[in-house]
Amino acid sequence: MREIIDMAALDVGQSGYVTQLSARPAMERRLMDLGLVRGTRVTCMVKSPAGDLRAYLIRGALIALRRADAAGVQLERECPPAGGAAP
C-alpha cells in the first residue's frame, strides 16, 4: 500500500522516497542542489532537543531542516523491513 506523508512527519529511523517537492522556490532549488529529487531515498536520523529541526540522510550527507521546510517535501513511506509484510 502506498502511504504518502510529508518529510516532517518522518520519525527517527524511518525512511521514504521523494514523490513531490513543493517548497518555496529558493528552498526547492537548494533541496534539488542537494540531490533531493523525485525517487530519492530519505532517512530521518536525529531529532533536535526541541524536535523542530531534524537531520535527514540524503544521498550520503546529513542535512538538517526545520519542520516548516521539511513539510514541503512529499514522501512515500518505506515499509520497515522487519515488518515482515509479504509483497
Binding site: L31, L34, V46, I63
Partner: peptide, 8 residues
C-alpha cells in the same frame, strides 16, 4: 528557510 549540513 535554511539547510544545515552536519558533516561526518
Amino acid at each position: 528557510s535554511f539547510t544545515l549540513e552536519l558533516p561526518p
